[in-house]
Nucleic acid binder design. Structure first.
Lengths: 177, 177
DNA sequence: CTACAATCGGGACGGTCATCCCGGTTGCCG
DNA sequence: CGGCAACCGGGATGACCGTCCCGATTGTAG
């Protein structure tokens, strides 16, 4: 049985790391995370042998929520609406989570693979909705999932995040058939 | 009068660095650039005291061409057409120049400032065309230059660069009033 | 051709960071 | 309450990189 303090420390590290990754991105040193969590770097290393392990754990948590939302949208709305809603949801999530945005921007973390392996395949859900909407004739047929991801990255690149809604309007208008 | 070999070395470094930045991005070590140029790291350092100096020199060269093209477009076409052409031109330039794309994506280099100081203000040209096109009623009025840059980054984020034209069509359609 | 100064090469230095390791500590079972 | 195994802290280690420095070299003026 794991010791109580070990469980507490693991949770504390996870909580602090999630906060830091969200506000300051992935380039924060592990030592800094340990310091703010009030533990030693060794403690972080033991629970998450690699910095990537730590971030993956946090990522999966986020993606779990998105996947659930995706499924709800899919059954509640028509494909195109569900697609655009999910698109906006992912982008908004990334807009106030710097680390997530960086991961989406492809700084070494392959979110698709990570998510797919854990059953939280957000990209897959998006792709399915895209194809369905295209078959229904509501989204341009020549669009690929790669184009969609590129546009998502564009939204996340908006530093100010002030005009996110404007961008979404433009992109939505452009994607519609 | 500068020594002939110094001139040669400077040119060689510039040429090799441009090639490397284009194909492998900005994270290539300076030592590697020196090695491939057949010179010592000291030689690189002397001509370009900082890695940023080296990249800036290359950047300015690219931006000079873009600025010239921008001016031609502006006098040959109506604002909206010129805007979209310039947009496409910048994106295409970035598509086969990894370093340029990274700089646009904001990895520490402020292209706008660099370009403006040297008189190659691509962003400024783009902004002017945008406003003119908006006054002519051909582009949505709520768009800001920040939105435009975000969309540009999106295009450059397309790893495959296969569907660049598709993306441009989508974005153009979305931006039009 | 000679000598000197500009230039060169590449190793040294300093800084950053992720990961590993180990002596000290403490929760927990009996 | 005692003892041990699991756990803790944080310093040590090693990798990477940009920049600086200096002894060796070489172009060039005279």
């Amino acid at each position: 049985m794991a010791r109580a303090d070990a469980v507490r420390n693991r949770a504390k590290v996870l909580e602090v790391a999630a906060q830091i990754f969200a506000t300051e991105g992935l380039s924060v040193p592990v030592h800094e995370i340990a310091r703010r969590a009030g533990v030693g770097t060794g403690t972080v290393s033991r629970h998450f042998p690699t910095k990537e392990d730590l971030f993956t754990a946090i990522l999966l948590d986020r993606m779990a929520g998105l996947t659930r939302s995706a499924d709800e949208l899919a059954k509640r709305y028509d494909p195109a609406t569900a697609f655009f809603e999910l698109f906006a949801m992912v982008v908004r999530e990334g807009a106030h989570h710097l680390g997530l945005a960086e991961a989406l921007a492809g700084n070494g973390y392959d979110m698709d693979t990570i998510g797919a392996e854990a059953g939280f395949d957000v990209a897959g859900r998006l792709h399915t909705l895209l194809i369905m909407a295209q078959q229904a004739g509501t989204i341009r047929p020549e669009i690929g999932i790669g184009d969609v991801k590129a546009l998502m990255k564009g939204c996340l690149a908006d530093e100010a995040n002030k005009n996110l809604d404007t961008l979404l309007v433009v992109i939505t208008a452009g994607l519609r058939a």
